[in-house]
């Protein structure tokens, strides 16, 4: 990989045309984010005409108890589901990498199904499932608990795949060395493997967390009274055409994800320098 740096092929340089196209594409990717931030400072209550600069929507947001409780629900949902799915997903990723068993290939393939299945299909499948079980056993009243279960279900495969990728990049001789030194399976895992795959687990957890924050469709169908999350709140407000406060809320969320992404990149870079 390093070798080709010395080559001076014309194809390896960006022409001005590619540069312009790339910059336009970046503008295209960031236009929606920019417009939300911009309009969160727009005075107009209705519509898209610019009528003046204001920060009153942020002040209104701080007073908005619905938005506050939606934020709380979103965090509970994301933290709850991520903690469960990270544990289960890591175990699954570990099992898939370190064990040979019949049906593994099939499981490997099927694991992509929950990832690629349209979220609306998953949402209505769970809705049907919950309502049948509820009629039969009287459990699974819709609410935060059913939402957490739903989120864990789509998070597990993501965590498993990320952790597995990290595991398969490890040198297997490390495990052997640890065993030769007399460590049992758990000791090897805890002292050798775990520290090495920790960045993978954290990356998987981050991904799971973001997926949960991002999800609207599954939450919408499995939610109950008072378990409105931020995406549900944003969606219903947008549908009703009341957006200035939502722009302010979205701006805060966008800033959170930008900061999160940058922190994560810095962390990863630090990590990759260390190893």
């Amino acid at each position: 990989m390093v070798r080709r740096k010395t080559e001076g092929v014309a194809m390896k340089q960006n022409s001005w045309r590619t540069t312009v196209i790339a910059l336009l594409l970046f503008a295209f990717l960031y236009a929606p984010i920019a417009v939300v931030i911009l309009y969160s400072f727009n005075e107009a209550r209705f519509g898209t005409n610019w009528t003046g600069f204001t920060t009153k929507w942020y002040a209104a947001l701080a007073q908005n108890s619905l938005a506050l409780s939606a934020s709380k629900n979103t965090l509970i949902l994301a933290l709850g589901s991520t903690s469960i799915s990270t544990i289960f997903g890591t175990m699954l990723g570990y099992a898939l990498d370190r064990f040979v068993f019949s049906g593994k290939r099939f499981l490997d393939r099927t694991l992509y199904l929950p990832i690629f299945i349209p979220d609306i299909v998953m949402a209505v499948a769970l809705l049907l499932f919950y309502s049948l079980i509820r009629n039969w056993l009287g459990i699974f009243e819709l609410g935060l608990k059913t939402m957490i279960i739903a989120h864990v279900t789509f998070q597990i495969p993501f965590v498993a795949i990320v952790v597995r990728a990290r595991l398969s990049g490890l040198d297997p001789s490390l495990d052997e060395a640890s065993r030769d030194l007399g460590a049992n399976g758990w000791q090897t895992f805890w002292h050798v493997t775990f520290p090495l795959i920790l960045p993978g687990i954290l990356a998987g957890a981050m991904l799971a967390f973001t997926l949960s924050l991002d999800d609207f469709v599954v939450s919408f169908f499995t939610s109950g009274p008072g378990s409105t999350t931020l995406p549900i709140y944003i969606y219903s407000s947008v549908k009703r055409g009341v957006t200035p406060e939502i722009n302010a809320l979205s701006t805060l969320l966008v800033l959170a994800s930008i900061i999160g992404t940058i922190l994560l990149t810095l962390l990863q870079r630090k990590n990759s320098k260390q190893t």
Partner: peptide, 12 residues
């Protein structure tokens, strides 16, 4: 694991 599970249930 148990702690995480309890935490997520208790907060609900």
């Amino acid at each position: 694991a148990i702690f995480a599970a309890i935490l997520s249930c208790a907060s609900i």
